[in-house]
Design a protein around this nucleic acid. Structure first.
Lengths: 130, 130
DNA sequence: TTATCCCTCATACTTTTGGGTGATTTTACC
DNA sequence: GGTAAAATCACCCAAAAGTATGAGGGATAA
């Protein structure tokens, strides 16, 4: 019963309210649709551990010569010690994977080791690589 | 002169239009003000220099804890760095080859590396192993 | 010129390493 | 006593590493 009176009495206000709501919604939709998305940049600092380059490292030529390790083999050894795979070393040196493997095998023979990890360990101890 | 009539004749429509405009504007303002900004993450790599103590070496517990590396994983890592194969590590620790592999995999995940040689290189730089 | 390295690359094969999944058992802590 | 992390192990599969062998070309020295 009372609703009727309310509606009748305030028909105009209700109408205006409806319009207001409708167009507020339209405005929101417009803004969302047309405005460039706001970008908030979140800066995340990722710690990267870098070896402070040893200023005066020189490979022990004596040892290299004594073990009969060639320049190319030394390069392969160095890249191995940096954690590169044979394929990555091949790409780096612009040679084939097989070539790197060959250098590797010769290296292991000369260093008298069985694996690259051993080669790295030994070469470091002997001052061949930094 | 004519404006007057226009205004009078269409007073209601103009009023509604004004309301519409006003609330459209309100909607736009609301959306712009309240919409969540899109997040854009920018990762900045921050270089942290670490020194490598040679003589009396103690593993950097801070780093180990930060990377969530367990005692057993550290042992495996250490033996890896000494050039042992997984099988040799298994013998040394009196566990199965599979166990060593599992520790290895977890290690690589935690250190965010792909190969044992990388793990060794990184762990050394971070002072986890000597 | 021949001999000898070094570097290159290939093929074929074996071993090692690594990834993924899932499960059981210990250990440690609340 | 529950629960969470650590440690253990297995199985399967794929990729990488390593071995063996041969071979061609370039530089260099006897």
């Amino acid at each position: 019963m009372e609703y009727k009176f309310v509606i009748i009495d305030h028909a105009f206000e209700i109408y205006v309210g409806a319009i207001a709501l409708l167009f507020t919604a339209l405005g929101i939709w417009l803004a969302l649709k047309l405005s460039k998305p706001k970008l908030q940049t979140v800066v995340i600092e990722k710690e990267v551990y870098v070896q402070k380059p040893d200023p005066g490292f020189v490979p022990d030529e004596i040892q290299l010569t004594k073990m009969g390790i060639s320049k190319r083999e030394w390069e392969v050894l160095t890249l191995m010690s940096q954690g590169l795979s044979n394929q990555e070393i091949a790409n780096q040196l612009f040679v084939s994977l097989n070539t790197v493997k060959t250098h590797g095998s010769n290296l292991f023979l000369k260093l008298d080791v069985k694996r690259r990890t051993q080669a790295i360990e030994k070469a470091k101890r002997m001052g061949m690589i930094g």
